[in-house]
Design a protein around this nucleic acid. Structure first.
Lengths: 252, 252
DNA sequence: GACCTCGGTTGCGTATGTTGCAACGACTGT
DNA sequence: ACAGTCGTTGCAACATACGCAACCGAGGTC
């Protein structure tokens, strides 16, 4: 819609990967380098990028500032924090908080696990709905019509041998999740990791977000993973209460 | 330089403060609302903003994602983390890590103190050079000519009764800081808080960032504040070592 | 239930802002 | 000192983003 803005935002993404030079960027988005220069200057004025020496560009501080302001304004994040931090401290496993956004899952908080296996996730990162436990929880919370609509319009890229690959299978899985009140990702996203997730609810019983624990398979087998569910649900319940949930689906 | 981009970035700032409506935004930046709509649509495509319902706009996940990528790429931040976290845990006081950027100080990390007095700071936020301990440390580390240049071109807004208000006083203060190896902010920025700061150095002895501890005056008097300096310097030394510093100003 | 208002959305013509070009200048390495 | 590389600037041409005004759709009021 807006060409120059579109190009500028694309630039930001490139720069984020790592510091880049002018010609690099120009070639990458297929415009003349003078154009890139002018866009970068505007971005620089607003502190969205900064120059390193004269040659390289990096993301600037406005990025951090705005992002942190935005994170602060996500209420679930703040209200769920104590419960999730405690869960993380108690179990030592990686805990994620995620919400639904435009056909994907977005991580809005992360508590790093104590075991050294680091996951390729980060606050702000997006992940597919079909192969994550949080994705299943979030979609399962929607009315059946919406579920169907989403499931039908999704792609089902195969990421591991266990990945769900069809709308039918996914919808069946969602039914199970809705009934049980929690979801499992049995190494459907990353080969060596499996997860369990449960919903965090707000005042009217609506699902605000989903919290998950991720564990390397070498550390805990499937049985062991399921044994974490009560602990997880205790934490999501506590988080729900802090978010205004009263347990009867009718807040206040 | 680029009008539409400039406007879009301004919009982001407005939206960050809190969710806003279209007309609001249009009036705020003085353009027609259809223009704002188109900019927002482009921003939305890139996930820089998301819509809440149909009426309100909020910052989107691309913001978080890029910001976290950017933070990860700041090496000092990562290498200083263990030492600063330990310092924070040991003392219970708020610890900041900051670097110099374009005539201001930028906070690149923050460890919240245990006492309930919260400071108005945040990762990514900017602060003036003349009234912060970190600012003094960072400028004091520059060659005299550069110090002078910066000091002369700065504004000296009065924020508290103790704020330094002239280039002469500031330069004198910088000399003291350079000699002592640490800086004090004696309630020059916020009335009820005073701070001490010390430099974090890299492989070649250059100052990469400054770390500070901030304490409410009611909790600790000036004497008590100064008594924290050894502890702080132990932490910044450790952080420096992790950043490649060898103590002789000649890395490797 | 019809009317009204308010906010978001769309199509269109025009002027403005943005683009690509080409020449310049600063810096590096040989 | 020269060649090569990369960032920077001025300018003219054009595409783009702009403002306008009319069109919707939802919520509230009488």
């Amino acid at each position: 819609m807006s060409q120059s803005l579109d190009r500028a935002l694309t630039l930001l993404n490139s720069i984020a990967k790592d510091a880049r030079t002018l010609d690099d960027l120009a070639e990458e988005i297929g415009v003349h380098k003078s154009t890139v220069l002018r866009l970068l200057r505007t971005l620089e004025q607003h502190h969205f990028v900064r120059r390193e020496g004269t040659r390289y560009y990096r993301l600037g501080s406005a990025m951090f500032d705005l992002a942190n302001q935005a994170l602060d304004s996500i209420d679930v994040r703040r209200s769920a924090q104590p419960a999730l931090a405690a869960l993380n401290a108690r179990t030592g496993h990686t805990v994620h908080l995620a919400s639904y956004d435009d056909g994907e899952v977005v991580y809005i908080d992360k508590y790093e696990g104590r075991h050294s296996v680091r996951m390729y996730s980060r606050v702000g990162k997006r992940a597919p709905l079909h192969c994550t436990a949080v994705g299943k929880v979030l979609v399962a919370a929607m009315p059946p019509a919406r579920r169907e609509e989403i499931a039908r319009s999704m792609e089902y890229p195969v990421l591991t041998p266990n990945t769900i690959t069809s709308a039918e299978d996914y919808l069946a899985e969602l039914d199970r999740v809705a009934e049980l009140g929690y979801a499992v990702d049995n190494a459907e996203h990353e080969d060596f990791i499996h997860c369990v997730a449960a919903p965090v609810r707000g005042a009217d019983g609506e699902v605000l977000a989903a919290a998950s624990m991720s564990v390397p398979k070498v550390l805990l087998d499937y049985e062991g993973l399921l044994a974490l569910v009560p602990d997880l649900r205790a934490a999501t319940n506590e988080a729900s209460v802090h978010s205004g949930w009263t347990g009867n689906g009718k807040g206040h």
